[in-house]
Amino acid sequence: MDLQQLFAELADVPWLLTVLDLVGVFFFAVSGALLAARKDFDLVGSVALALLAGLGGGITRDIVLDRGLPASLQDPIYLAPPVLVSLLVYVKVIHPNRLNLTITLFDAAGLALFTVSGVMIAHAMGVHPVSVVVVATVGALGGGVLRDIVANEVPSIFDPRGVYVMPAVVGAAAAELVAQRGALNAFTGFLIALLVFTVRMLAYRYQWRLPGADVSQDKDRLDRLRRLAEQAQKAAVRRAARARERGPRAAFGPAEEYEGQVRVEDWDPDTQAITVVDEATRQSVRYHPETGIMDVTDLRTGRTRSYDDPDDDWVVDTGSAEGADADRDDAGR
């Protein structure tokens, strides 16, 4: 058997597209369910966000290609991954630790698989090569965009911290070039998906960004916000303990000022999460001590970005002497 015949047999696998779609749905659904956990959604909200993330891209792709009723609505099996994932996250079989990194990993895997499956479907329908790339990219991005919009997050395609769209575009173009030569199959498709996944994660890890993009948060500012939020959270715990000792009249006041730097807006005694406002920079910070997640909202624009614990923030370091000193101080703590 020559190489061309082997490629032809690998391409002629009737369940290949279904498997790619289902695995992609699973990965995207995990990213949706984990985001729902970070947002403290209940089980219904988790299922809804997992469904949007997992099925949104495929439905968008099928509608654009005019394939009739989208595949995910024809076959009930497509509903299984989002529901199963939501239950696994809810009972903490998939544990929501280091959420930003975990969400990005699953999101990148879904992005890669939907890019390849989108090219396979569009190419098989005889779509123009340029349109194949566009359709595959739209299908790969659709679920993540819907997930982020519904969860009131800045969609990843607009976040300059790591390129998001370009890996899908490059992967779709590479897959279409391979398909033009009749060599797009399970093996080559896996290699292209691996390429998309790797580029996306490297871009996220090293904060690659396109020319002209700017990052509104540098490491020094984030270190300052995290330090103030942690201090305010510990002070809130101490004041709550004193309040319990003195009685209900000494309850903690959520609007209390902390060292004249941040104002405490809210504190949850059950989760220990605290929300503080930094008037100097017009930013609101929601800090979750259990996970180390810090959600930073710009009060002027309403945009929210989330950061993991200091070792995994993966944000731009200004390289300043003050930043280096801050890093050494953090290491000492």
Rank of each mutant, 00 (worst) to 15 (best):
L84S: 09
V64P: 00
A109Q: 09
V132N: 08
G118T: 03
V91H: 12
T137E: 02
Y90V: 09
V145T: 12
L99V: 13
S117Q: 11
Y90M: 12
G143P: 08
S72F: 01
G110W: 00
V138H: 05
V91K: 12
T115K: 07
G144L: 07
P76R: 01
V119N: 01
Q74Y: 02
V134H: 07
A122K: 00
T102Q: 11
D66N: 15
L146E: 10
A108S: 13
A80P: 03
V127C: 14
V91L: 15
S117E: 11
L101I: 11
Q74S: 09
G144A: 10
A108R: 06
L113F: 12
V133E: 03
V91D: 12
T137P: 07
G118C: 08
F114P: 03
A122D: 08
I77L: 12
V145F: 11
A109T: 07
V89R: 06
A151V: 02
Q74I: 07
L111K: 13
G68C: 13
L87M: 12
D66E: 15
D75K: 07
I63V: 13
N100D: 09
A124D: 15
N152T: 10
I63A: 09
H123V: 02
L79E: 07
G144S: 09
M125G: 14
T137K: 07
P96G: 14
L87W: 13
S86W: 02
T104H: 03
T104S: 06
L99Q: 07
I94Q: 12
L99A: 06
H128E: 15
P129W: 15
I63D: 01
I77T: 10
G142P: 06
A80K: 04
P129I: 14
V150N: 00
M125E: 15
S117R: 05
F114Y: 14
D62I: 00
G126F: 12
H123W: 13
V85E: 06
L105R: 09
L88D: 05
G143Y: 02
L73K: 01
G126L: 13
V116F: 11
P82S: 11
V116G: 09
